[in-house]
Nucleic acid binder design. Structure first.
Lengths: 353, 353
DNA sequence: CTACTTGATGTAACCGGTTACATTGAGCTA
DNA sequence: TAGCTCAATGTAACCGGTTACATCAAGTAG
């Protein structure tokens, strides 16, 4: 009573957000009781609870996530590190992770490194404010990954590291099967890979599968891989480059669907019919793959599942995570490889693994 | 010296991350000095600084972002609220925001609401842990927006609200110009809009512009808008629906490029030539718009700039933000409207006959 | 020699929550 | 009426930083 406040419920300063102590003062209880009310603790009397709740509503109090996080020693936040947000692949990955995050009340924090040189510093900063990190393969050097993993929970997606749990797909085998299909079913002999194997572990695996299949059939690659980005525009570039070079290979195995779609859209304008003059395959099973003409033969990847699984691991309470989790892919035979629509409906083509 | 520690540099518990107090103890200084070292405060002696730095390196100390945020009363984090991550539009928006965020050392926190019913709660939680919020138009009800804006800095992108600063594009005028082009240059009379105006403020604005142009030329719409999603698949659906309905309109004005691309890819297979039988336009200037065949006439939007501007506003220190910032669009005339390649290089006014 | 200045460092409060433990008082028993 | 139990609530320490202010020693002017 030695401090005569005009309205007992007013927060310390008018412009400021009320804190738990403001609520305590306003409702004449201690901070512990306020905290109990916000946690629905059964130990607090109905009458007290109502009084506190009234003050909370009146002053518009919301517990600070920061204060909570500090006290709990966990942030309820999951970090995802990607090279960038472009393209449907990463969007699907994020949505997969998000689906498991929301059901646990965990927020998602996305960081695009964009190959920035200071990416490692940003990731470390991110690690400081998250409970776990999902990192896309190829975004950070192995030593940096090791450092992050030693400080907290890290899960790799579509990458590989000797000691960090990884969720991936067997892109190598899938690419080998796809390539074998082109060779065995369609009799193609001169194949070429489109994509930069050094660009990402995913592309590298696909390229390895491609050369595996070539080697298994005693073929040599029809030229170096066309080292390009993974976007539609690069597909257009590839088309022009191939056209200018004169004779085209029998088939082009593209590192992803967007590249393939760029080729699909550009080659006919340059006088090359698909699949008659050149067969084309993609990877990912993009929404456009089914709609492109000709419809794109590709490999379906459960990208959202990858994200979901990675998130589940990153948020798991117990240790003992499997070192490597491999999710199945599915060959999707459509027309761009040379199959006709009736072929495509035949069961043996859709090999599940 | 009354507490004989075996190794003076070991942190309190072996498994735990070292805190500032561990470093202080290990290097024989106070926490204030450690804090000064981590802030490169010139007041600390070179010798002391080295001693502290050595302990920091040896114990692998990293200041907790949480502790900092609590003390500074700011998180150095920017939140972005979107309906989802699908499609290139939102990716571009995020990348634009990210570009300004990184140069200020601010992290980005993305939340996809996916029209979840508890989205408002998630957003409030997000608001608790960010310094500012960028919210895509149409993701939250106006009252919720007002509540968020009263508690912190909020910037709307591509939306409208009477009291919240907004960064947008004049989609209505752009759509009207695009539609006028179809009517005046190509003489189309029976036009139809593809997209759900109630789905987002952006689509609504485009539909308004469409009807504006119709009204200005005393035309009536050739049927209700085709109320579909904004993805490629929906474009395929639209194509089938139009085909099944029998006679097609002269032109289809699509709410975005993906829808248009879906139509572009599907209609020819159903026997409708583009643009001869039906003209098609998009909106956004997607990477595929230039590569599609025929190349897609559309409206270019500076999406990354929208994101960048919104981020700059959301992070601005001073008040006085403009209520509404309108960024310019650009009509991109290609072939899907009926213009020929040579027309396209000339100003649209003289492309006729 | 004293008083004052200055630079380096330490002390302790604070940011906004949570929670172990302490306190209070009512109801009950012997 | 003392003694006990138990439910409701309060006190204060803690999470990991930052920083205003205090302290202290050395240097310098008078």
């Amino acid at each position: 009573m030695d401090d005569p406040t005009p309205t007992p419920g007013s927060p310390s300063a008018p412009g400021t957000k009320p804190t738990i102590r403001d609520i305590a003062r306003a409702s004449g209880v201690s901070v512990a009781t306020v905290s109990r009310v916000t946690h629905d603790d059964p130990r607090v009397t109905r009458a007290t609870k109502e009084r506190v709740q009234e003050a909370i509503d009146r002053l518009g109090y919301r517990p600070s996530a920061l204060g909570r996080a500090l006290s709990y020693r966990r942030t309820n936040t999951l970090g995802i590190v990607l090279p960038g947000l472009g393209g449907p692949y990463f969007a699907a990955l994020i949505e997969g992770a998000e689906s498991v995050a929301v059901e646990r009340g965990v927020a998602i924090n996305v960081l695009g490194t964009h190959l920035r040189p200071d990416a490692a510093a940003s990731v470390r900063q991110l690690a400081e404010r998250t409970d776990g990190l999902i990192i896309a393969g190829g975004t950070l050097p192995a030593t940096e990954l090791a450092a992050l993993a030693s400080a907290g929970r890290v899960v790799l997606v579509a990458g590989d590291h000797e000691s960090i749990p990884t969720v991936a797909v067997d892109g190598r085998t899938a690419a080998a099967e796809l390539t074998a299909h082109l060779i065995e079913i369609h009799g193609h002999r001169r194949l070429r890979f489109v994509g930069e194997p050094a660009g990402s572990p995913d592309t590298a695996a696909r390229y390895e599968g491609f050369t595996d299949a070539l080697a298994a059939h005693d073929l040599v690659e029809a030229g170096e891989p066309l080292r390009l980005g993974l976007d539609v525009r690069s597909g257009g570039l590839a088309a022009r480059e191939l056209h200018d070079a004169g004779v085209l290979p029998d088939a082009l195995v593209c590192a992803n669907d967007e590249l393939a779609i760029g080729l699909l859209a550009t080659l006919p304008g340059l006088g090359h019919r698909i699949p008659r003059d050149v067969a084309i395959t993609g990877f990912d099973d993009h929404a456009l793959a089914e709609i492109a003409s000709p419809r794109l033969t590709t490999v379906h990847q459960p990208i959202e599942d990858l994200g979901a699984r990675a998130a589940a691991y990153a948020l798991a309470d117990d240790g003992g995570l499997p070192q490597r989790t491999v999710l199945p892919t599915r060959l999707v035979i459509r027309e761009s490889c040379g199959c006709t629509e009736t072929d495509a409906s035949a069961p043996p083509q859709e090999a599940d693994r």
